[in-house]
């Protein structure tokens, strides 16, 4: 089977800082990482490749030229071929326009049996691009997946639902979005793997390469618009205590009594 994994480079949101005076993001020095959900999607695909000789795994990402880093990371972990969609025409794309561009690229690659995406990206948390691609390609989708097994053309997937889980069955081709399992020891490539990744096949495609119609791309092609960005507003008056641990513990008990949580 031919698997395509869609990955995204994101700022490490746990490292993003806020300027307390202006309430704006401080981006300097914040590292860019592979979206952790995509990291798991990639590992899931590579595990299938290990298990089933003959499977191939290609990765595709959309972003500025520096997003090549995550593609190369994926190649180092074991992906066969990497593609980066990079073009000023993509700038400002919302989830709709992003899904469109990615689905056009996937069509161009052709003959994909399985498409893996992270459930969502940690910088946007929308979880829309995976289903968007599935719709554009007319494929069935299984979202919030934890585990995938393949037998011939039949795929059995374990997925998360609210308050439980489901086992589902379907046939390729199909699209899957992967959740991030807790306590998962993410794989990192060795120096040799990283070195050989820089020699693997990597291409950069622009809007023309994927045959995209420009009015569906970028800001023009995006139905949603950001009208305002602002710091989250403060709603409660805060009472501060800077006391010893023992005093703090007593004070908390006092508050709980006052508010009626304990007698």
């Amino acid at each position: 089977m031919k698997i395509i994994v869609c990955i995204k480079q994101v700022p490490d949101t746990t490292e993003v800082k806020i300027n307390p005076e202006t309430g704006t993001l401080i981006r300097t020095g914040v590292p860019s990482i592979l979206n952790p959900y995509d990291h798991f999607a990639l590992e899931s695909a590579l595990n299938l490749k290990k298990k089933h000789p003959g499977f191939t795994v290609d990765v595709i990402s959309m972003g500025p030229p520096q997003a090549k880093a995550v593609v190369q990371f994926a190649l180092a972990l074991g992906a066969d071929e990497g593609i980066l969609l990079s073009d000023a025409a993509f700038a400002g794309s919302d989830t709709w326009a992003t899904s469109y561009a990615l689905s056009m690229a996937i069509k161009k690659i052709g003959k994909a049996d399985m498409i893996f995406c992270g459930m969502q990206a940690i910088d946007g948390d929308t979880a829309q691009v995976g289903p968007g691609i599935a719709q554009q390609l007319g494929l069935p989708q299984v979202t919030f997946c934890e585990h995938i097994e393949v037998e011939g053309k039949t795929i059995i997937a374990e997925r998360h639902i609210d308050g439980g889980s489901e086992t589902v069955e379907l046939r390729a081709p199909a699209l899957f979005t992967m959740i991030m399992p807790k306590d998962h020891p993410y794989a990192y490539p060795s120096f040799t793997q990283i070195y050989s990744a820089s020699k693997k096949k990597f291409s950069i495609w622009n809007a023309q390469d994927i045959g995209a119609e420009s009015h569906y791309l970028g800001l023009k092609g995006s139905p949603t618009q950001v009208s305002k960005i602002y710091p989250p507003k403060k709603e409660t008056e805060t009472q501060f205590f800077n006391v010893s641990a023992a005093e703090a513990a007593e004070k908390i008990v006092e508050i709980m009594k006052k508010e009626g949580f304990i007698k």
Partner: peptide
């Protein structure tokens, strides 16, 4: 090396 490979090596070292 190219900057990407170098930084991937650093990342792997940090993760380890």
């Amino acid at each position: 090396l190219d900057a990407i490979s170098r930084n991937l090596m650093l990342d792997s070292l940090k993760a380890y």
